[in-house]
Design a protein around this nucleic acid. Structure first.
Length: 108
DNA sequence: ATATTGACGGTGT
DNA sequence: TACACCGCCAATA
């Protein structure tokens, strides 16, 4: 099938794969980079589907507040937070501290 | 085809 | 800073 929606998911994965170690980004930033700034929710939806893909570090994707909104979708309740902390990030109360410093812009 | 949901973002209060 | 409401868009029922 030549559905463009499938490409949408692939585009999201491609951007997420480019996130460097120890850095994170937001759904809106990814959406914007793929040309769908208003489809941030779709990015999150795609990530949920990507949870099965090891090629896509979904744990490095958080919302604009730097909150681990998707941590509830991981196997362990604190798996996502643990992964981020393993990368040198500081997570507290489901929120990334110094988010502005560890933020990585896909468009940049 | 319509209604509801959701890993969001922006703005108002 | 915290909370509420609205707008966007695809998937699901």
């Amino acid at each position: 099938m030549q559905t463009s929606s499938l490409n949408f998911f692939e585009r999201v994965y491609q951007v997420v794969r480019q996130i460097p170690y120890g850095k994170v980004t937001s759904y809106g930033a990814i959406a914007k980079s793929i040309g769908a700034a208003k489809s941030a929710r779709m990015v999150g939806y795609a990530m949920k589907n990507a949870s099965n893909l090891e090629d896509v570090p979904a744990h490095r994707v958080v919302n604009r507040n730097g909150i681990l909104t998707g941590k509830h979708h991981f196997k362990g309740t604190s798996l996502m937070q643990q992964l981020l902390e393993s990368e040198g990030l500081v997570v507290q109360d489901n929120k990334i501290q110094n988010f502005k410093q560890v933020f990585w812009d896909p468009n940049k």
